[in-house]
């Protein structure tokens, strides 16, 4: 009763463009990350992150390339309308790609936590100087 034009909204017909919800919510029963082994090359895995984009892809790639044990790391967005990010990792065999990826998450977390602290400190110094 509060809102006007209730029924009208319900009847609103949308075109066949992908709705915003496709960018926001994982379909029922889908995993956020899937991991698949690439059989053609040794020690190589392909990770698919659903509902992720360049923000994450480039981040993980650059982080993984820092590790001596990672031989190859690259990411791909298969299609602009597909909200997936595919990351391919090959290692030298001393660790599995998954372990390398978990290490990357760990490092990124400590970097960001530190960066947040650095921002707070920088901000405080700025306020004091004023």
């Amino acid at each position: 009763m509060y809102f006007t034009c209730f029924e009208f909204y319900a009847k609103l017909v949308v075109m066949n463009v992908p709705g915003p919800e496709e960018l926001l919510y994982l379909p029922e029963g889908m995993d956020k990350v899937t991991c698949e082994e690439d059989k053609r090359v040794p020690h190589c895995s392909i990770f698919t992150f659903h509902l992720e984009d360049h923000t994450l892809g480039n981040l993980l790639r650059m982080q993984l390339l820092r590790y001596p044990k990672v031989k190859f790391a690259a990411y791909q967005i298969p299609h602009p309308l597909v909200n997936d990010c595919i990351l391919r990792i090959q290692t030298d065999g001393t660790v599995t790609p998954k372990v390398a990826l978990l290490q990357a998450f760990d490092d990124l977390r400590s970097i960001t936590e530190n960066l947040e602290k650095a921002f707070d400190e920088g901000h405080e110094i700025f306020l004091k100087r004023k």
Binding site: L59, Q63, I111, L115, A118, H123, I125
Partner: peptide, 27 residues
Amino acid sequence: MAIRVLKNEQFDLLFDVANVDLSIVNA
């Protein structure tokens, strides 16, 4: 890693980020 804030207003913030990988800044 260090951050220096140069300007902080409601509509405008300017800061320097040193020694951080660009992929993180871009994220």
